[in-house]
């Protein structure tokens, strides 16, 4: 039998389901950084530790239901994303302002209302804003996305899953993933434009 460090995720999951605690420890070590990063993006830094604990506990309790036909990583993302959504629903959160006002604007002919220079500004947000300001603004922007858009955007664009993988994790059609991610990108792009435009 391969040592835990050399085994695939799927093999470790099988061994952990049979009570091999070393295999489960290896799963935790291997994925904890990614799970923490995902949790931060879905619920923010303050609540991420709770979601990480809830996510790994859920993995442990549900190892027997892991079906080897899907990748372990996809299954893990599904569990942690669900833990994050349940966590958000259980918490009373302060109302946040919608990002809808940051959607692009067009004239009656369907042409962009802004100049090329103005439209280009968001691409320079990381040059125009200092690091701390950008980090805080990015986290605040994710918080302002509707849950449906946030999950799809985080998984597709920040965790860099494929559209098919996101559809699998969220249990929705690929076309719905594309629609939600696109809408989130448009709002976040406009939000960066407003932030960076004030500095340009």
């Amino acid at each position: 039998m391969a040592s835990p460090e050399d085994a695939t995720d799927e093999a470790l999951a099988s061994r952990a389901a049979l009570g091999d605690t070393g295999a489960f420890d290896e799963i935790t070590i291997r994925h904890q950084a990614r799970v923490y990063r995902l949790a931060c993006r879905l619920v923010g830094h303050d609540d991420a530790p709770d979601v990480v604990q809830e996510g790994f506990l859920s993995v442990y309790l549900n190892l027997a239901s892991f079906r080897q036909e899907s990748r372990f990583g996809t299954w893990l993302y599904r569990i942690v994303t669900n833990a994050a959504l349940m966590h958000r629903r259980a918490r009373t959160r302060r109302p946040v302002e919608s990002l809808e006002p940051f959607l692009p604007e067009f004239d009656a002919m369907g042409r962009h209302c802004q100049t090329p220079a103005e439209l280009q500004v968001p691409a320079r947000a990381d040059e125009l804003l200092d690091r701390r300001e950008l980090v805080d603004a990015a986290m605040a922007a994710l918080e302002r996305l509707p849950d449906l858009y946030r999950s799809a955007f985080v998984l597709r664009d920040l965790e860099e899953l494929t559209t098919a993988e996101v559809a699998d994790v969220l249990g929705i059609e690929a076309a719905t993933v594309r629609q939600r991610v696109h809408r989130a990108r448009l709002m976040l792009r406009g939000y960066l434009a407003a932030l960076a435009g004030a500095k340009s």
Binding site: A33, R37, C40, A125, L134, A138, R185, R189, L192
Partner: peptide, 17 residues
């Protein structure tokens, strides 16, 4: 700017455990 948006947000939200 549409293409840059995911990269900028990815870099800004990559928290270390």
């Amino acid at each position: 700017s549409y293409l840059a948006t995911p990269r900028i947000l990815r870099d800004a939200t990559a928290a270390a455990m």
